[in-house]
Amino acid sequence: MDTFIQQLINGITLGSVYALVALGYTMVYGIIGLINFAHGELVMVGALVSLSVIKLLMGAGLGLPPVLIVVLGVAAAIPVCMLLAFVMERVAYRPLRGAPRLAPLITAIGVSIVLQNIAMMIWGRSYFSFPPLLNVTTYDVGGAALTDLQVFIVLLAGLLMAGLMWIVHRTRLGLAMRATSQNLQVAGLMGIDSNRIIVAAFVIGAALAAVAGTMVSSYYGIAHYYMGFMLGLKAFTAAVLGGIGNLGGAMLGGMLLGLIEALGAGYIGDLTGGILGSNYQDVFAFFVLIGVLIVRPAGLLGNSNTERS
């Protein structure tokens, strides 16, 4: 039982990170119908920038409290990622705005590769360990270990998601975003500057990605130039699982995917009688995706409105 609780805790933590990243995919998709495959790289850049800043601040010997150092690291990563997303949209995607849907999709994959290689040139190919700054306290929950870092990650992710929901549903910007996602041309006729709205979707998603990047590298204790690829793919899976284009769906999908992965890796060996080992952890998530898509092609919370064609 304690093992099961522990897997649940692991899954929820991982799931909230996936959910944050999935939101970035889903927001952009909801508005312009583009799957921004470079979104995972924003997570990677966020992680590496905050890590560099954190290391710099630690090395500076200012005697800052560790929590403040991490906050400053994230605070530095957010604008960098936002700027990057802004440039990305302006340079790579806006020129392709009326082009067939395949063109921006392939461009997105290209942008992803470019960003990976730039990161490789800046930070090199080595793995970076996240400095053991935060003194992690472990609590005992029914025999399972729960760390304050995990609690913090889940809470912060929840808070950010609530904030995003507030922006989308309670502000003028959100109203404009929703209008643009329903119909780009008509929203334009109503006086909404759709280019600005699209940039806003990219930039907000990038900010969430920067936070997610710092979370994931502090949680696993490691960051490297290649980390965005798999993470992005997983978050994309989460977004599709929940119904891409649907904000609630991205969160649900992220949480579900985290849980499926943790439980899958934990029990796959027992379920298959040892034929498939826990190294098939990554495969498991994609199996579930295929299964869901066969039954509900629009995703769990998706409907024909969000499924654009």
Binding site: D2, T3, I222, A265, G266, G277
Partner: peptide, 20 residues
């Protein structure tokens, strides 16, 4: 007897299983 890969960074699930 658990497995991972030489590119993984997430070992929580297998470690949890081992812990049990």
């Amino acid at each position: 007897r658990e497995f991972t890969t030489d590119k993984s960074t997430d070992f929580k699930a297998i470690l949890t299983k081992i812990k049990g």
